[in-house]
Design a protein around this nucleic acid. Structure first.
Lengths: 133, 133
DNA sequence: GTATCTGCAAAACATTTGCAATTCT
DNA sequence: AGAATTGCAAATGTTTTGCAGATAC
């Protein structure tokens, strides 16, 4: 399993260091769109040498190599998502949770003449089912 | 025209101060999705007393009162849009320009069971027509 | 063995806060 | 007059940078 993870990183041309493996595995097993702080707080106790500098470096690298998405659903904090498939995110303004949802495959509008789309994000705000009960 | 602007603010329950009128008029006449810095640099020469604190206060107030949208297409800077109608934004990764585009009225995916949508943003990245020539 | 990566401390930035002076109605 | 707003300076919080030592292949 550790071996598998190593392969995934190396296929993307990323040297598999302990720190990067730990971050990758964290993102793979935590689908709650963690912030940098959440990841750090969770990994640091077991890996005291892990620094925030490295965490920032690693997350930036993962975003660039398409191993993670950097979500800016809130302007004041970046959240990360290990699921890089095409999907939208919605956030409940009451409980603060972020949920995934599938995007309709169809178009989502008419882009300007000649614009070539490479990637996109859809963010929705509102109130989730639990909070409306 | 100044009178009109004043009315618009007051209808939203916002006291029409000089600073707020200036910011509102700036947003009305600059549709290029300016950052805080761009707005400040542009207004400050003509209104030297305008502080960034007030600018931040004003932009936050406008966002809350639906007089402007706060766009976080880039995680590291907030941009503002005086056009609060429903539309998407796309950014060219080569020239950096941000363009508006209409959203298809249809759904943009299936939200989680029970989630009530209040607002949404759609961001698209790619290369614009001019940069592809 | 050598290039890359890590982590510390400091720097750089953007945004917020406390508060006294000013401005609106 | 009285409440709301402004703007300064300081605080806060996040992300970046420089660089010496450690690590991976």
């Amino acid at each position: 399993m550790m071996v598998e993870t190593k392969k995934i990183l190396e296929e993307k041309g990323i040297r598999a260091t302990q720190q990067r493996l730990a971050v990758y595995q964290y993102l793979s097993s935590h689908k709650n769109h963690p912030t940098v702080e959440m990841i750090y707080s969770s990994l640091h106790p077991e890996m005291p040498s892990l620094s925030k500098t490295t965490l920032y470096n690693t997350l930036k690298l993962f975003s660039e190599k398409q191993l993670a998405l950097a979500l800016t659903i809130d302007g004041d904090e970046v959240r990360f998502d290990g699921d890089t498939s095409d999907h939208g995110h919605c956030k409940c303004r009451r409980c603060g949770k972020v949920f995934d949802f599938p995007l309709s495959s169809a178009d989502m509008g008419t882009l300007p003449e000649g614009f070539r789309r490479e990637s996109s994000h859809v963010y929705v705000w509102g109130i989730c089912g639990d909070c409306r009960k």
